[in-house]
């Protein structure tokens, strides 16, 4: 089976989870599993007003595309969609979506997990905090746990 062509979008606007799943599941009848991951903005116990997501236009799409192509090569997927937002994002709003579909669930689960682990450490996005008290907060620090997470693959 040739690897599928993943869909990658980097955009300021929101996405519709069910529409993205439907786009991958309506094209074939042999899909037994659709796994989705949605990353959202937390309010950090009320202290955060919003996150400002900066990205590197061009490289963001290219790097997510490279990770998605690896996932598509490694697991027998029937579809893979990755959407990452940028700009100002408020608590409760969506930041990132991964939809992986496959004939069986294991490939879809693993591919979505792999996608997120590499996206967090390699996709050129940076989060800056805007605090609820009106001040501009810090740049969010990268977590060493995220670096460790990629090592298991």
């Amino acid at each position: 089976m040739n690897p599928i062509e993943p869909t990658v979008r980097v955009q300021p606007g929101d996405f519709d989870l069910s529409a993205e799943v439907a786009a991958l599941t309506k094209i074939r009848k042999n899909i037994g599993a659709a796994v989705t991951f949605t990353g959202l903005c937390r309010d950090e116990e009320g202290s955060l007003a919003a996150l400002e997501l900066e990205h590197y236009p061009g490289m963001a799409e290219a790097e997510i595309g490279r990770i998605a192509a690896q996932a598509a090569k490694r697991w027998p997927l029937t579809g893979l969609t990755v959407i990452h937002r940028y700009g100002r994002i408020e608590p409760g709003a969506n930041i990132v979506l991964v939809v992986a579909t496959s004939t069986h669930r294991k490939a879809a689960f693993e591919a979505a997990d792999f996608m997120m682990d590499f996206l967090k450490t390699r996709a050129p996005f940076w989060k800056k905090e805007h605090r609820a008290d009106g001040s501009v907060g810090e740049w969010v620090d990268a977590k060493s746990d995220d670096d460790k997470a990629v090592e298991r693959w």
Binding site: G39, L53, H55, Y56, H84, I95, V96, M116, L119, K120, T121, R122, A123, P124, F125, W126, K127, W139, V140, D141, A142
Partner: peptide, 8 residues
Amino acid sequence: LFPPMTGG
């Protein structure tokens, strides 16, 4: 040039 990434 940029710091470690914090997307996702």
